[in-house]
Design a protein around this nucleic acid. Sequence first.
DNA 1: CGAATATTTGAGGCCTATCAAAGTGAGTGG
DNA 2: CCACTCACTTTGATAGGCCTCAAATATTCG
Lengths: 261, 261
Amino acid sequence: MHAQHQESSLADRGLRRASPLAATRLWDSRFLSHGERDALAEAVSPAKSVPANTDLIREGERSDTLFFVLEGWAARYTTTRDGARLFPALSIPGDIANLDALMFDLPDYGVRSLSQVTIVGLPVDRTRALVARYTGIAQALFRLALVENATLGKWAQSLGRRSARERLAHLLCELSVRLQAEEGNESSFQFPITQEQVADALGLTAVHVNRTFHQLKDEGLVQFANRTIIFPDVARLRKVGGFEPSYLHGQSAQTPGRTCD
Amino acid sequence: MHAQHQESSLADRGLRRASPLAATRLWDSRFLSHGERDALAEAVSPAKSVPANTDLIREGERSDTLFFVLEGWAARYTTTRDGARLFPALSIPGDIANLDALMFDLPDYGVRSLSQVTIVGLPVDRTRALVARYTGIAQALFRLALVENATLGKWAQSLGRRSARERLAHLLCELSVRLQAEEGNESSFQFPITQEQVADALGLTAVHVNRTFHQLKDEGLVQFANRTIIFPDVARLRKVGGFEPSYLHGQSAQTPGRTCD
DNA sequence: CGAATATTTGAGGCCTATCAAAGTGAGTGG
DNA sequence: CCACTCACTTTGATAGGCCTCAAATATTCG
């Protein structure tokens, strides 16, 4: 942690310690060399805190920066004409909420904070330059896109073919694995979002999510204690949700070796 | 079309005319230089015809080649323990069915032909070499991943928040646009799959898909004539499905300029 | 402490699933 | 060219999961 390089410019950007990106999957990736990490840390904008329920990107609004989530949860959302909302993806610490901004100027979704979040921005043009110059960064971003792809596929499977109970169980299992990279404990984590937001992730009603949560509680599969969720029996919860963590390709610390080819 | 380069080796691979990839989005991409196209055509394996309902990749089976679909329709599929199937993606001519094989050795899905298909394989290791050498190819593949991402997001929106009628309308609209790159007519195309397969794409039952098709027919929104589907009123069908083609980012000939930044 | 937000509970209804069977069409072999 | 078969489509009846509407309770936050 000695300030070997010029840390001052980084500190100016609010990146006092190593880098706010240190918590990020992109950063953790085995693909990044030292130089690549420095280049990334250099390109990043100051960390910013955003309150809950505020749009980072309004639906269909142009955006010229990539958003890294450092703390808190955000979500991509789409709205149908009749006002129904769905979250095709939850963005939790370590995620990039709008990776596609790298290639497309107009997203087909919005991004909104679900809890208070702290984020860091990466300007698209600078990122393009990094991608062109550093193959490791290009690979890491490509990997992120593919993992998101797999996650979306599972999401679709849940929405299309699983009951409310199974869907909720699957979501909770997925989150426990994805969060584990930071929390270090797969059987419990902070759960900062409302049941209505869960409903928008699962394609259900808030009312029904509530009933489903109670069902899982009654079965002894989940518990709550001041905003943290606890899984007394992870194995059984996974069974209920039909959850197989392999599609996350080592987004957690749990399967460190199986990440890439 | 004169054989300026050595066409013989290509011909040996069954790529007689320009290249079987000519029909492919990857090929069409404005990112590919002449040299990159040649390199791609060179790397591709001989075109192969596969009958309907056969696995290109069995669920969870290792695969070391990328599959381009040249003709016919295929699908990625996932199965839940109770046997329910869902297609998170349909792979139609021009698509790569298993892009993630580039980075991950074990897919979390299977790939299966829905109709008779002709495909071409691209070995993963050769593709990696191409990506490392040709930035245009890397960019084009990244684009494909991001478009697939957007498509999966819309798929999730349909599965989570749209009625059967809306889902079917949306799917048909999406297919009409994606196929248009080849067919050139957005109001009609060959429809080679069964209602049960449609059900697996929409998260419905074959029975209900049948009823929903009839509903759309009765409304004058779709017609069938010997295996081709016809949309008498595309605008109205899009309205029903809540379909906005922008997320496909110019996968069709219809929005040629808006493809990239 | 009060207001706004989130959770909880109840009753009733609709959309889609399930189960079952009949009808249709394409391909095969005699 | 006609049975015959297999797969797909179509139709009907019933049931169930989740939604809708509504209101009460609990919690958060200023």
